[in-house]
Computed example of a mutant assay.
Amino acid sequence: MLSDEELLRYSRQVLLSQVDIDGQLKLKAGRALIVGLGGLGSPVALYLAAAGVGELHLADFDTVDLTNLQRQVLHDTASVGMSKVDSALQRLAAINPQVKLVAHRQALDEDSLAAAVAAVDLVLDCSDNFGTREAVNAACVAAGKPLVSGAAIRLEGQLSVFDPRRPESPCYHCLYGHGSEAELTCSEAGVVGPLVGLVGSLQALEALKLLAGFGDPLVGRLLLVDALGTRFRELRVKRDPACSVCGPAHG
């Protein structure tokens, strides 16, 4: 059931026929793991908390730095030097005290990552390095949990949804293999703030669709964002039958 306060708080999205009360109840029962509370994780966490996702698991081992504040809108000047998880806990609790928040302040190793993924309904990869993305993808494939993956650097962004519950869905490894991409980070290559806000907001939207069960999630499709020209391009992506992570020999 939704309380009168909840009906009022979420009234604008409950008005949507695609969401309605049933969808809001699904969001309330939903559990999501957000890996990384930086530029992408900021809008993800803010929007999922505001939308009433019942349980948010927050994973980040870093602290807030002054250079983060240009794009990581979850944090503020008073948060500098604080754990990103603790900064997020304060902000999200202030936005929506009805959401349960679970903290992961340490870097997740293979076992703790597997346990964290098993405890939720879906995972949002908001990290900034290839190794973490590969590890999160492998854990999601093993647990059969959908993964909303976003990335942004310089003036370019990418977004896709990998859902091992759907036999036709590729996984992250199907697309990117063993990491031929250059291991550049935003601290080396730069990034414009609204771009990560845009990609992170789209990640939050995909998560709401998956949890509430409406719309057409971005499965089997890779959305490319060109911020310089304000252009979007979509590529169809297929599962690799020989993938070492999600292929039949590993399923």
Rank of each mutant, 00 (worst) to 15 (best):
H57I: 06
G81C: 12
Q70F: 01
L15S: 15
K28F: 10
S83W: 04
R31Q: 15
A78E: 13
Q72A: 04
P97K: 07
I34S: 09
Q72T: 02
Q70L: 02
Q24Y: 09
V19M: 15
L46V: 09
G39Y: 07
Q98C: 00
L37D: 03
S11Q: 14
V64G: 00
A45E: 07
N96C: 02
D60Q: 11
D62K: 05
K26I: 00
G38Q: 07
T63Q: 09
L56C: 07
R31S: 14
G23P: 01
Q72Y: 02
S42H: 14
V44P: 07
V85D: 14
G38E: 04
K28T: 03
Q90T: 07
R12P: 15
V44S: 13
A93C: 07
L37A: 06
R71E: 05
V80I: 15
H75T: 00
R9E: 01
N68R: 01
L74Q: 01
T63D: 12
V53E: 08
L69H: 00
L27K: 04
D86C: 04
K26M: 01
S87W: 01
D62W: 09
V53F: 10
A59M: 04
S79C: 12
I21F: 12
V19Y: 06
D76S: 02
L48D: 06
Q90I: 00
A94S: 13
L40N: 13
G41W: 12
L92I: 01
G39C: 05
V80S: 10
T67P: 14
N68S: 03
R31N: 11
L8Q: 08
A50Y: 10
K26Q: 05
G52H: 11
V14H: 06
Y47F: 10
L101K: 08
L7W: 04
L101S: 12
A78G: 05
V14E: 04
Q72M: 03
L46K: 05
L46Y: 09
R12H: 15
L7N: 12
D22E: 15
G52F: 06
G30C: 10
G36V: 03
A49P: 08
G52C: 11
H57N: 09
R9L: 05
I95Q: 14
N96L: 10
V102A: 08
K28Q: 13
E55Q: 09
G36M: 10
Q18D: 15
L7I: 13
A94I: 04
E6P: 01
L7G: 14
L15M: 09
R91F: 04
G81H: 13
E5A: 15
S79P: 15
E5S: 13
I95G: 12
A50G: 08
Q90C: 02
T63L: 07
L69Q: 00
A94G: 14
Y47Q: 06
V85T: 14
V14A: 02
L58A: 08
F61I: 00
D65G: 05
V99P: 15
I95T: 14
L40H: 14
A88G: 04
V53T: 06
T63P: 09
L46G: 14
A49Q: 05
A51K: 11
G41I: 02
A94P: 15
L40M: 11
